[in-house]
Amino acid sequence: MLHALSLWLICFGLWLLLSGFFDNSLLLSFGALSCALVVFVAWRVETIDPEEQPLRPRLGPQLLWYWPWLLWQVVLANVDVVKRILDPKLPIAPMLITLKPSQRSDLGRVIYANSITLTPGTVTTSLSGDSLEVHALTREGADDLLAGDMDRRVAGLERGTP
């Protein structure tokens, strides 16, 4: 029930943001009704997610530390890959490496895998059990991942310490 309520709240917040109507009560009630319909359909097809709920966030303010760091990493990786693409000699060395993520929960592993993929130059190719296969465009990118800085940060994010 709490899950359905939080889904409704999120839907209604999104509706408010997208519609831009804040003072027309007829339209507001239509919006609320359509959000309730969405929640009903989600309940009927059993996709109200029991795992993670925005009302009780497991990842708290640490995300605010993690995101700027990730953004900076993405910028650095972008500049590196752009240099390599524009270089006439095309200095790439694609390789597949295997990592052992140290996160315990599925959520932590998925955040780690998605962070790797979001950084250009490295793409997660498979995530199963407790190993993670990564296709890296360059030796340097692979070495960075093997050094495990991002892994430690995501694990810290999961534990709740920056």
Binding site: A93, P94, M95, L96, I97, T98, R139, A142, D143, L146
Partner: peptide, 12 residues
């Protein structure tokens, strides 16, 4: 995938 020869040893 085309792979480069000297891949670093994977962490076990």
């Amino acid at each position: 995938p085309l792979l480069h020869e000297d891949a670093p040893p994977s962490k076990s």
